[in-house]
């Protein structure tokens, strides 16, 4: 247990148990106790499954992706111990019939992946009749959240209907995922001109909505600008790690020493996101190991924080 199995130093059992007894790690401890009932000795290697908050299904408009087929993606994620994946639809990035895209997504998640995929619909508060799209997501397709692409759909986070959407989703208890970017703007198709999303107005918009559940995905440090401290201090926003860069980037981010972020993001505000199948899921997975994180940090990052948002 506690690899590196072949060469690394194992954590001694006393320290391991102490770690498990931290209050934040109680659900892990319970899980391990559960597995111990069937096996001789609980091990950390038995421990933690992963909830991936940042997955898309279907076809990326500009390239055929290796794991574009839903079943293939499910199999791939499962091989890496990702047991739940919150899935948006690539179709929603450039299509304008959001309801059709959301319906297909709901059906795909229902019929494929053996319950792995949690459908996350898309609404464009800059477009017509978005309230009805949102209602259908929640009531007809039983979606627990919606994913927004402000850069692709052409509105800012200071847009009046964006604030209305936050209020409506908060009322419904839905999660709102805001995609800060899909790909590096240096490599966009030349026909696309996509502005960066300014997250500054989000702080103000959420001040009157403390119950809103908002997550920023692909939230690379540079995209957050100087807003990290305010987002952490004045909102309950969570961030996925798909675009967190730097050697030991996640640990450095928690410690406030990640060079590309202007502040620290505490572990309780971080969630696992892979941006698969656009990114290899191995990228986010290896970040869990590149930083010297302990169980009290890994457990919230790998699933507990996400579970708090969508049970």
């Amino acid at each position: 247990m506690l690899a590196n199995l072949n060469e690394g130093q194992a954590i001694d059992r006393r320290r391991f148990v102490q770690t498990l007894m931290l209050p934040a790690a109680l659900p892990v401890a319970a899980a391990l106790v559960g597995s111990a009932a069937q096996t001789a000795e609980p091990t950390a290697a038995d421990g933690l499954d992963i909830i991936d908050c940042n997955v898309h299904l279907f076809d990326w408009p500009f390239r055929k992706l290796k794991y574009a087929q839903t079943d293939a993606l499910a199999e791939k994620l499962r091989r890496h111990r990702i047991t739940k994946a919150w899935a948006g639809s690539f179709e929603a990035v450039l299509h304008t019939q959001f309801d059709a895209a959301n319906r297909r997504l709901a059906e795909e998640c229902r019929s494929k992946g053996d319950g792995m995929f949690v459908p996350i619909g898309t609404v464009n508060p800059g477009g017509p009749d978005w309230e009805e799209d949102l209602r259908r997501c929640h009531e007809a397709y039983r979606m627990s959240g919606v994913r927004l692409y402000p850069a692709y759909h052409g509105y800012g986070l200071d847009y009046a209907d964006f604030a209305k959407l936050l209020a409506e989703t908060a009322k419904r208890g839905m999660l709102v995922q805001i995609v800060l970017r899909m790909e590096d703007e240096r490599c966009h198709h030349p026909a696309l001109v996509i502005e960066a999303v300014d997250v500054g107005p989000l702080v103000e918009a959420l001040k009157t909505l403390p119950q809103a559940k908002v997550q920023l995905i692909n939230s690379a440090g540079r995209l957050l600008g100087k807003n990290v401290a305010a987002l952490v201090r004045e909102t309950q926003v969570t961030f996925d790690i798909a675009a967190t860069e730097g050697n030991g980037g996640v640990g450095q981010l928690i410690a406030g020493t990640n060079y590309s972020y202007t502040g620290a993001i505490p572990i309780e505000r971080l969630v696992f996101g892979s941006h698969a199948p656009f990114f290899p899921c191995e990228s986010a997975l290896m970040k869990l190991f590149e930083s010297p994180l302990d169980l009290a940090e890994l457990e919230p990052l790998m699933y507990a924080n996400a579970k708090r948002l969508i049970a």
Binding site: M1, A3, N4, A44, L298
Partner: peptide
């Protein structure tokens, strides 16, 4: 020192 085993996640160990 690693708390979890990378191999359990389909990843290479150190």
């Amino acid at each position: 020192e690693f708390v979890l085993n990378p191999a359990a996640y389909g990843l290479p160990t150190r």
